[in-house]
Write a protein that binds this DNA or RNA. Structure first.
Lengths: 213, 213
DNA sequence: ATTTTGTAGTAAATCAATTCACAATAAAAA
DNA sequence: TTTTTATTGTGAATTGATTTACTACAAAAT
């Protein structure tokens, strides 16, 4: 399992994330088995692609019955790397940063929100929802000491590049960049994903226009 | 132009958005012409796909010279529906909502940020960066009166469904949903895009794992 | 004029993703 | 048992996206 994977495209990974949400929901309702056609309805996909996605990672169900939910959750979490908790820090404790720290969707066993960093002396030393804010000066030492793998970047755009370049790729493996500076998908072996609000608005603007014509 | 379009996939639209950013940057540096290979380097794509994307919408350059930047910007904006300003409101003026209102990337001629709405009486009547906060009660009247087409949804997840169902599809054509409730891509003829932080974390978690193995 | 150079436009080829359609098989029913 | 039913697993077909590779121009250089 997991080693006879050829190239997995990002859309497959995004679907796995959808399946996971769907599975957790089914589990919360007390289900223990699930059919590919149930996942398919819930996620708005054809059932065949779900079976194919899973088979590709060596996950198989039971003919005539479906898939075991617990097992499926465990396998998908393993594929996504969610089986080991990852330490996360947030840089930039402004409104957006604060919102993210407070956000429910990531208060999750898989991501351990260790600390926040900011330059504003009014904020340093304060807490946001059990997360302490430290001075940016202490960032790199902290990352090293606490084995931080993921950085959420919510600083003003003018600081983006400087901070990204300062992160030690020995520890930091991924950045979620919320600033309006668009970064490349990889830099110094750190994976970067941009959350690009302007682009999302443009895409929805296009969809709206199509719907009218 | 624009009517011999077959089916345009979202990836093409996302690329157009990238081209637009690149073009505006080139324009800001005083360029008036641009080659597909320049856009290609900047956006990390093959030049041929750029030419093909543009040709598909009836946009052509000059052989041996390249494309006229101003013209290209105008055409892409037209395709994305950015030529007409769209009125936008934000519902939920918490940290995330406040951050979005203050966000530079959308202070843009194409999207007119008209108002914010919230239930919290402490906030009602206040301003965030020139945007006034109104009571949720006034939402639907406001949408009708001010021809609001886009809603940015930053309320607590418990309120998501109620608010989405209350929006009048006669006016609202698109929703950007930032709550942790995942909504379908379309509902009552309103296009919906989810900004799903949990999914982004899962995707980057997968990428990080791949990079190590 | 003629040749060279540079870049667009695009048909054909390739590569990738999705769907179809059905055999395999396990459980339930008869 | 045997038959029926349900659902997986997957090869083949299809559909879609990207890349290659080359032609067509237009401008600049000779």
């Amino acid at each position: 399992m997991e080693n006879f994977q050829d190239k997995i495209s990002e859309v497959v990974i995004r679907r796995l994330s959808d399946y996971l949400r769907c599975l957790n929901y089914a589990k919360s309702k007390g289900q223990t088995l699930i059919k590919s056609s149930d996942i398919s309805t819930e996620c708005g996909l054809k059932s065949s692609i779900i079976r194919k996605d899973l088979a590709r990672f060596g996950i198989f169900g039971m003919k005539g019955k479906g898939y075991n939910i617990d097992e499926l959750i465990k396998e998908i979490e393993k594929i996504l790397g969610l089986n080991k908790t990852k330490n996360v820090v947030l840089i930039g404790a402004g409104n957006l940063g604060t919102a993210i720290i407070k956000y429910q969707g990531i208060k999750n066993a898989n991501f351990n929100f260790v600390a926040a960093f900011d330059n504003n002396s009014d904020k340093i030393g304060k807490m946001i929802d059990n997360t302490k804010i430290y001075s940016n000066e202490r960032l790199n030492g902290f990352i090293k000491k606490n084995r931080i793998e993921i950085v959420l970047l919510t600083v003003p755009s003018s600081e983006t590049i400087k901070i990204v370049d300062s992160l030690d790729p020995k520890f930091v493996k991924g950045i979620l960049n919320f600033t309006s500076v668009i970064l490349p998908p990889e830099k110094n072996n750190i994976f970067i994903h941009n959350i690009d609000l302007a682009k999302e608005l443009e895409v929805i603007s296009y969809c709206m226009k199509k719907c009218l014509s």
